[in-house]
Structure formats: structure tokens, C-alpha cells
């Protein structure tokens, strides 16, 4: 559980670091992308901390190139 809090703290730090600047400069699009990515990142990290089974990114590779041995 403490790791979940750590992740949230990190996300909050990221928000604090970036959002004021972005808002001030009126970068709406950037803000949106940032928030989306940050949510994805935090969600993934929290999922990892809670030891949920996450799909292996290399699984894509194996599917695509599976069966071919070097």
C-alpha cells in the first residue's frame, strides 16, 4: 500500500511541476496529452505495485515474430 501512495505522490509531484507552467502558457493540447499519459503511467505503476498481472510488452514481438528462430 505504501508503494501506491508513493506512486500517487510522484504523480502529484509531476502535476505540480508541469501543470502551472502549461496553464500559464495556455498550452491546452499539451496539457491534455500530459494528463492522459500521466494517468496511464500512474495506473500502470499502481497496478504493478498491487501485483496485478500486466501483459508483457514483448508479447507483441513474440506474436509477430514467433516461430522464427534466429
Amino acid at each position: 500500500m505504501s508503494s501506491v501512495f508513493a506512486v500517487l505522490a510522484l504523480a502529484a509531484a509531476a502535476l505540480g511541476l508541469e501543470v502551472p507552467g502549461l496553464v500559464k502558457r495556455k498550452r491546452k493540447r499539451e496539457l491534455a496529452v500530459f494528463l492522459i499519459l500521466l494517468s496511464i503511467g500512474s495506473a500502470l505503476y499502481i497496478a504493478l505495485a498491487l501485483e496485478t498481472e500486466l501483459p508483457n510488452p514483448f508479447g507483441v514481438l513474440k506474436l509477430a515474430f514467433g516461430g522464427t528462430t534466429g
Binding site: V7, L10, A13, A14, L17, E18, G21, L22, R25, R27, R29, E30, L31, V33, F34, L37, L38, I40, G41, S42, L44, Y45, A47, L48, L54
Partner: peptide, 17 residues
Amino acid sequence: LKESRMLTIPYGMILIV
């Protein structure tokens, strides 16, 4: 996008996971 700096931390998290 006009800036890319803010993407660093989210990308960092995603990469680590």
C-alpha cells in the same frame, strides 16, 4: 505539440513499469 518536456515523467513511469 509545442512542448515535450512535460511528457518526461509520464513516459518515465510507463517505461519503468
